[in-house]
């Protein structure tokens, strides 16, 4: 409609005016120019600069020596990077295979008409996401405190687990603690996506399936899952990307460190430490670009496996 009005106004304007022709040509560029300037300054330039930096060894901000692909060669034999990749992958695995089914389960539950107080429960499950990761990190670092922490007290009460269990200083328990925290934070968030998708599934399909004799399980597989597939793929890809960007939560929970035996070291944390603690921005850029390429490949793989290339829901 707006386009139509614009066309009419253009037709009515004096076509012979040079000023009109000039401003008509330039106006769109003028309007997009603020975005383009900002994007070029704060988006394109840092991206290009970091790509160039990834071919340098930098010692501090002022000294850089070109080393070609040596940073990438070093990266693939760097045990710290291996550890960071492993930790991040483990976290991402649990995010996908634990968090998403739980989110979907909750969404199915809260989409059922027989559940009382659904609106309140939806708000309750979503509300952890209203808090920032830093706040949640501080909160859970207190909950996981040995001897006096609520988690240990509770586990001691129900299962006799020792109260001095050190969740955040035992390398074997750091990742479970991080996964538990992220579950609390993100299950409700992803539930909202699934809820929206569930509510968009055509109700007639359920009626038709019921007429055909399909039970609830068959309906879930044959109607619900295909119906929510585009959203499920979106949530899967976004959760994976989010997991690979994990930084604040372990950084805060582990007291600004990678934790015992680097059990909480993630790729982004390693990037930060390399760039701003060790001062090698070149190598940090290499880590960053490797992460970006890795996430791109994994996302493309997920989209291919789930059939998202073919048009999602179909």
């Amino acid at each position: 409609m707006a386009t139509r009005e614009t066309e009419i106004s253009i037709v009515r304007a004096p076509r012979t005016s040079r000023w009109f022709v000039l401003q008509h040509r330039l106006a769109p560029y003028l309007f997009v120019s603020p975005f383009l300037i900002l994007f070029a300054t704060f988006g394109v330039y840092p991206i290009v600069k970091s790509l160039l930096l990834s071919f340098y060894v930098t010692n501090g901000p002022k000294s850089a020596v070109f080393v070609g692909l040596q940073n990438f060669a070093f990266l693939f034999s760097d045990p710290d990077f291996h550890k960071a990749v492993w930790n991040t992958a483990v976290f991402a695995f649990w995010s996908v295979f634990l968090q998403l089914p739980m989110s979907l389960g909750l969404a199915l539950l809260l989409n059922s008409l027989w559940v009382k107080g659904r609106e309140l429960l939806r708000l309750a499950f979503f509300s952890p996401n209203l808090l920032g990761q830093v706040f949640v990190g501080v909160l859970f670092s207190v909950l996981f405190i040995p001897q006096y922490g609520l988690v240990n007290r509770f586990l001691h009460f129900i299962a006799g687990i020792p109260t001095d269990t050190k969740w955040l200083s035992n390398p074997d328990l750091v990742m479970p603690a991080l996964v538990l925290t992220s579950l609390w934070m993100y299950v409700g968030f992803n539930m909202v996506y699934f809820l929206a998708a569930l509510q968009a599934v055509d109700k007639d399909l359920y009626e038709a399936a019921t007429v055909d004799g399909a039970n609830a399980w068959h309906q879930f597989w044959a109607v619900t899952l295909p119906g929510i597939k585009p959203v499920a793929v979106f949530v899967l890809v976004m959760s994976t990307i989010g997991s690979f960007q994990l930084f604040e939560l372990p950084w805060i929970m582990l007291n600004n460190s990678a934790g015992p035996d680097q059990a909480g070291l993630t790729i982004v944390m390693y990037l930060y430490q390399t760039g701003f603690v060790t001062g090698d921005l070149g190598y940090a850029s290499t880590v960053g670009w490797t992460l970006a390429l890795g996430v791109l490949i994994i996302s493309l793989f997920q989209m291919r496996v789930t059939g998202a290339w073919k048009g999602g829901a179909d």
């Binding site: 002022k62 000294s63 090698d280």
Partner: peptide, 30 residues
């Protein structure tokens, strides 16, 4: 140091971080 912007004149640095500022050639130490 990297951006040459808002660099203070004097700074107190904690001992475990100090070493990281001494990277590179002496002439390039900030």
């Amino acid at each position: 140091f990297l951006s040459d912007l808002d660099v203070p004149d004097l700074v107190e640095v904690e001992i475990s971080a100090a070493g990281s500022f001494f990277r590179g050639p002496l002439k390039d130490v900030g």
